[in-house]
Simulated assay, not measured.
Amino acid sequence: MHMGILTLHISLPGCRSLKEKRQRMGGLHERFGRNPAVAVCESGEHDRLEASEWTFVAVANEGPKVEALLGEIEDKIQRSVDGRVMEATREML
Rank of each mutant, 00 (worst) to 15 (best):
M1D: 04
H2R: 10
M3Q: 14
M3T: 12
G4L: 07
G4A: 08
L6C: 01
T7I: 00
T7H: 00
L8R: 00
I10C: 01
I10P: 01
S11G: 15
S11F: 11
S11T: 14
S11V: 15
S11R: 12
L12P: 10
L12R: 10
L12F: 11
L12E: 08
G14M: 13
G14W: 15
R16S: 15
S17E: 10
S17K: 10
L18N: 10
L18Q: 13
K19Y: 11
E20K: 13
E20A: 12
K21G: 07
K21F: 06
R22I: 08
R22S: 06
R22H: 10
Q23H: 14
Q23T: 15
Q23Y: 13
M25R: 02
G26W: 01
G26K: 04
E30R: 05
E30F: 02
E30T: 03
E30P: 11
R31P: 09
F32S: 01
F32M: 00
G33R: 00
R34W: 01
R34F: 03
R34A: 01
N35I: 01
N35V: 00
P36Q: 03
P36M: 03
A37Y: 08
A37M: 12
V40I: 08
V40E: 03
V40R: 02
V40C: 07
V40Y: 01
E42I: 05
S43W: 08
E45I: 03
H46G: 13
H46K: 15
R48Q: 04
R48F: 12
E50T: 09
E50K: 06
A51E: 03
A51L: 04
S52N: 03
E53V: 04
E53Y: 00
W54R: 00
F56Q: 02
F56T: 03
V57H: 06
V57L: 11
V57Y: 12
A58D: 12
A58Q: 13
V59T: 12
V59H: 11
V59A: 08
V59N: 08
V59R: 07
V59F: 10
N61F: 13
N61L: 13
E62D: 08
E62Y: 10
E62A: 13
E62W: 08
G63R: 10
G63P: 07
P64D: 05
P64G: 05
K65C: 10
K65M: 13
K65T: 12
K65S: 15
V66P: 03
V66G: 09
E67W: 04
E67P: 00
E67S: 04
A68K: 10
A68D: 06
A68L: 09
L69S: 09
L69H: 05
L70G: 07
L70P: 01
L70K: 04
G71T: 04
G71L: 02
G71F: 05
E72A: 08
I73T: 04
I73R: 02
E74R: 04
D75A: 15
D75V: 11
D75S: 13
K76P: 04
I77Y: 00
I77H: 02
Q78M: 09
Q78V: 07
S80M: 03
S80C: 01
S80Q: 03
V81H: 02
D82H: 14
G83W: 12
G83L: 09
R84E: 15
M86K: 15
M86P: 11
M86E: 15
E87S: 07
A88E: 00
T89P: 06
T89S: 08
R90I: 10
R90K: 07
R90A: 06
E91L: 12
M92W: 14
L93G: 14
